[in-house]
């Protein structure tokens, strides 16, 4: 891995459009999104429900087809196009390099398969023929995530939420990936367990030189994890930049509102929250407002915002904002 000047980004998404259907209405859940992810970094992706962050993750994983734009991984085009009826399989090289950790650890583990089987499956599918070698690898991965090889014969429902998420991580690790897409990996977990999983993801990143695309709605978790952050709103990127810049000097009114709305730091001492400026509810992604899609909730709105959609423009080193007035 070239740490000094990475020539090709690990993941590169260009003008991606992912169509989706909701209650019979077709709309673009991800609309003209471009970004790239460098080796070794943790790119945070934040936004509220309906912003398309999970759809984007699944499109990158090839679970949803895109209607235009492309996705490349280590320079190779991996865009899934057309109908999902007969999805072509990705090459083993791509599959091994790009893995995903899901939000709900219970739903992402086959309830009828043993833990050993669940972690072993990626190896079977990817051509590791030697059974003993597979078992050894499974044991190693389970130990790596802090569970140990003796859990292999048990079933998912015998574990707590945090342990199940560790199993999901072990499965993603078994192919020794370079990039892991983490789709809300701790949101379904209890608070006391969240820290365990975040620490584990951290340790793994250091030990295995992993990169993460870390998706979350939780500002505090992202503040901790991400070195660079993308903010999405109704399918589009509204702001992107280095974490310190974004958290301390956000330019887009939506990013500011998100940061302000997040619950306070309970250790910061006594404070009663002042009432917020009313934002109103998120419009449905199905009928996205014209012009700037945030204009229905924006305090800075002018007639221009209703008429023309602001383009994502550079406002500082690595810092991009899509707002007429930011």
């Amino acid at each position: 891995m070239n740490m000094i000047a990475p020539a090709t980004p690990l993941l590169d998404v260009r003008n991606l459009v992912v169509p989706h259907r909701k209650d019979g209405h077709a709309f673009n859940a991800v609309d003209d999104v471009s970004f790239s992810l460098q080796p070794g970094e943790t790119l945070g992706l934040v936004g509220e429900s309906g912003c398309g962050k999970s759809t984007l993750a699944r499109a990158i994983m090839g679970l949803y087809p895109s209607s235009s734009g492309n996705i490349s991984f280590k320079g190779a085009d991996i865009t899934t196009k057309g109908s999902s009826l007969f999805r072509p399989r990705r090459s083993r090289d791509i599959t091994r390099g790009l893995q995903m950790v899901f939000q709900d650890p219970l739903l992402s583990l086959n309830p009828r398969a043993t833990i050993g089987r669940i972690v072993e499956e990626p190896l079977i599918v990817n051509g590791v023929r030697n059974r003993a070698a597979r078992r050894a690898k499974v044991g190693e991965m389970l130990t790596r995530v802090g569970l140990g090889p003796d859990v292999m014969d048990r079933l998912p429902h015998e574990f707590s939420g945090g342990q199940r998420q560790r199993i999901g991580i072990a499965r993603a690790l078994s192919l020794t990936p370079e990039l892991i897409i983490c789709d809300e990996p701790v949101s379904a977990l209890d608070l006391s367990v969240q820290a365990q999983v975040l620490n584990l993801l951290n340790d793994l990143q250091v030990d295995l030189k992993l990169s993460y695309l870390f998706i979350s709605h939780d500002i505090a978790v992202l503040r901790y994890m991400a070195s660079r952050v993308i903010v999405m709103y109704l399918g589009k990127i509204v702001e992107a930049g280095p974490a310190d810049v974004l958290w301390n000097a956000a330019r887009h009114p939506y990013t500011k509102a998100l940061i302000a709305a997040a619950p306070g730091d309970p250790t910061a001492g006594p404070r009663a929250r002042p009432n917020k400026v009313t934002l109103g509810d998120i419009p449905s992604p199905v009928d996205r407002p014209h012009g700037c899609s945030f204009h229905t909730r924006c305090a800075l709105r002018q007639s221009r915002c209703v008429e023309t959609e602001p383009a994502l423009r550079r406002v500082g080193p690595g810092h991009f904002v899509a707002c007429h007035f930011a």
């Binding site: 699944r58 994983m61 090839g62 679970l63 007969f86 999805r87 399989r89 990705r90 083993r92 599959t95 790009l98 893995q99 995903m100 899901f102 939000q103 709900d104 739903l107 992402s108 583990l109 086959n110 309830p111 499956e121 990626p122 599918v125 990817n126 999901g168 499965r171 192919l175």
Partner: peptide, 17 residues
């Protein structure tokens, strides 16, 4: 539609399997 099926797809398991 369960995530464990999606997970299998992401590590390259074929449809019939």
């Amino acid at each position: 539609s369960a995530d464990f099926v999606s997970a299998c797809y992401t590590f390259g398991m074929g449809n019939l399997r």
